[in-house]
Computed example of a mutant assay.
Amino acid sequence: MIRRTPMKPMNEAEFAKKRDEVLQAMIAFDAGDAKRIQHFLKVYTYAALLGRQEGLPSAVQQTLELAAILHDIGIHAAEAKYGSPAGIYQEKEGPAPARELLENVSGIPEDMIERICFLIGHHHTYKDVDGADYQLLLEADFLVNAYEDGLSPKALTTFREKVFRTASGTTMLNTIYGLPE
């Protein structure tokens, strides 16, 4: 797949307003599900921080942040349709509601929406990672899932070796979980 990154980022004030609209819309989308709201807020926070630490270009940073907010938008549909929140089902069911939500926030560029939907449709796929936004979304989601799932140090180390590729993500994982480098 050809990687599509917006050629021109939104200015910071414009992006901040749109990001907050997306945050509010996603909180409303998951209303009554505090666990999932807490999850995406944590993933968003890690993704935004890691992207800044990696020095992402503005357009890529903006895409990463919006994708992190929306990454699990397909969980409810996956549970309803397949009786499971498994990653493969989230990837199938997430892009359509994400696109609808993003299109309701005026002014988000179409190429950014396409990339966000691609990331949502692949956020549990660890091969053929085609960009820093994709890599950092995987890493940020894992930082949260590792805690929520109570993973062992051995599982953390194995995942780090197989999936983590960025210096900031690896340092964050090691620091949070006290892993040896």
Rank of each mutant, 00 (worst) to 15 (best):
residue 2 I to T: 08
residue 2 I to Y: 07
residue 5 T to V: 11
residue 8 K to M: 10
residue 12 E to K: 14
residue 15 F to Y: 14
residue 20 D to S: 08
residue 27 I to F: 02
residue 28 A to R: 08
residue 38 Q to N: 15
residue 42 K to Q: 15
residue 42 K to H: 11
residue 44 Y to A: 13
residue 49 L to A: 12
residue 49 L to G: 03
residue 51 G to K: 13
residue 54 E to A: 04
residue 55 G to H: 01
residue 64 L to E: 06
residue 64 L to R: 10
residue 64 L to F: 04
residue 67 A to N: 05
residue 68 A to W: 01
residue 68 A to R: 03
residue 69 I to V: 15
residue 71 H to W: 03
residue 71 H to Y: 07
residue 77 A to F: 05
residue 82 Y to D: 05
residue 82 Y to I: 05
residue 88 I to K: 15
residue 94 G to R: 06
residue 100 E to D: 13
residue 103 E to C: 13
residue 103 E to M: 13
residue 104 N to L: 05
residue 104 N to R: 14
residue 107 G to S: 10
residue 109 P to D: 00
residue 109 P to W: 01
residue 109 P to R: 01
residue 112 M to P: 09
residue 113 I to C: 00
residue 115 R to C: 04
residue 119 L to N: 08
residue 120 I to E: 08
residue 120 I to S: 07
residue 120 I to Y: 07
residue 128 D to H: 15
residue 133 D to W: 01
residue 134 Y to N: 12
residue 135 Q to D: 02
residue 137 L to R: 01
residue 140 A to L: 06
residue 143 L to T: 05
residue 144 V to N: 12
residue 145 N to C: 09
residue 152 S to Q: 07
residue 155 A to Q: 14
residue 155 A to Y: 01
residue 157 T to L: 12
residue 160 R to N: 05
residue 161 E to K: 15
residue 162 K to Y: 02
residue 164 F to E: 02
residue 167 A to K: 10
residue 167 A to D: 15
residue 169 G to E: 03
residue 173 L to D: 11
residue 175 T to V: 10
residue 178 G to Y: 12
residue 179 L to Y: 12
residue 181 E to A: 15
